[in-house]
């Protein structure tokens, strides 16, 4: 109720509702929030009532370290909502956090990026979740389009550009021309699958069980997508499955490269499939300009080299690839604020 009035006191938001991280761009203010998409829930053992204990960074610190009454949830999975209620609460928390006005509950216009491979049901869930969190109007934009705009690709040109967005839950590849998506493909492989692959590799080869945060740390520090002469090492601790006690051991970058072969192959296959399906004129443009990498996965060492080697095309890592989607959404919001008809472009729903 009174959403219109409250909207007058709210700033438009572009939200990159990612599997791993949620980023919020405020129109006219830039990126104002970058927190993990994690929610800690406290369950009253007597009454059975569930309450939100922490959201974002605070909740991520609790990941894997919670007592019985607490549980940490990642409400997004594979780029879409896995737990509707918790997602709504998380969005509500983030939206209130980025609004300085406390007198009114904010009711902003929100632009949310969604995976291009998501179904209508999944998109509707995201829209309803944002509406439930207080949004006045919800626009949905495909993630590759937002990523391309955020990377600075001139999407309005009559020239094809290929963008590969490697996120936490999905990797999406799209060919963009004239403010529209010519081809889009998505695979449910992303940073989470990299972590799972590392956990699985360590368990299989070292007989040690490690948690998700540890796997993520390994990925960030020594993860590599292409073999190099420089070998980096990291010492980690986990629970030895045979002895049942914690043990410390050392992993090197070549081992992690081996562990990541399977998910990386899936991404390469998606890129090759996109190149095969792209119309010839646009394929020529892509061959000339190359592929632009965005998303957190683009930060993996030498992933551009791997894709270049596999496809034979030039590969460019966008500036600040983690925030490309949120920044691209923000630029679209700026345009919508000036011209309402912009919602008809950029494949916005």
């Amino acid at each position: 109720m009174f959403k219109w009035l409250r909207g007058k006191f709210s700033n438009d938001l572009s939200i990159d509702l990612g599997t791993a991280n949620t980023l919020i761009y405020v129109r006219g203010g830039g990126i104002v929030l970058n927190e993990p998409s994690v929610v800690a829930i406290n369950q009253d053992p007597v009454r059975g009532i569930r309450t939100i204990a922490a959201v974002g960074t605070d909740a991520k610190r609790m990941l894997g370290r919670t007592p019985n009454n607490l549980s940490t949830i990642r409400p997004m999975k594979d780029g879409v909502i896995a737990d509707f209620t918790v997602t709504e609460k998380m969005l509500q928390h983030f939206i209130r956090k980025v609004h300085s006005r406390k007198f009114f509950n904010p009711s902003p216009r929100v632009l949310i990026s969604v995976p291009c491979g998501s179904t209508q049901v999944e998109r509707r869930a995201i829209r309803e979740s944002a509406m439930g969190a207080g949004a006045r109007v919800v626009y949905l934009i495909p993630e590759p389009m937002a990523a391309a705009i955020g990377a600075g690709i001139p999407v309005e040109e009559a020239r094809g550009a290929m963008v590969l967005d490697i996120g936490g839950g999905t990797s999406e590849v799209a060919v963009i021309s004239l403010n529209g998506i010519v081809y889009a493909g998505a695979v449910r492989i992303g940073g989470d699958r990299f972590d799972e692959a590392i956990i699985s590799y360590v368990r299989r080869n070292f007989g040690v069980l490690i948690g998700e945060p540890t796997a993520e740390r390994i990925k960030h520090e020594i993860g590599s997508a292409y073999p190099t002469s420089e070998v980096r090492e990291i010492e980690i601790k986990g629970r030895n499955l045979a002895e049942g006690v914690p043990r410390s051991f050392t992993l090197n970058s070549n081992e992690i490269l081996e562990a990541l072969q399977e998910p990386l192959s899936g991404i390469i296959s998606a890129v090759k499939m996109a190149l095969e399906t792209t119309p010839p004129e646009l394929a020529g443009d892509v061959a000339e300009r190359g592929i632009v990498l965005t998303g957190g996965g683009a930060l993996m060492r030498d992933i551009d080299k791997l894709i270049m080697e596999e496809t034979g095309l030039n590969v460019v890592v966008a500036e600040d690839p983690l925030t490309c989607v949120a920044r691209g959404g923000g630029r679209v919001l700026e345009l919508i604020a000036k011209d309402e008809h912009a919602v008809e472009a950029f494949a916005i729903e």
């Binding site: 990377a151 600075g152 001139p154 190359g290 460019v316 890592v317 966008a318 500036e319």
Partner: peptide, 13 residues
């Protein structure tokens, strides 16, 4: 060389 994003990519490499 086109848009700055591509030039930055070339220079970076």
């Amino acid at each position: 060389l086109g848009a700055p994003v591509f030039v930055r990519g070339y220079l970076s490499r």
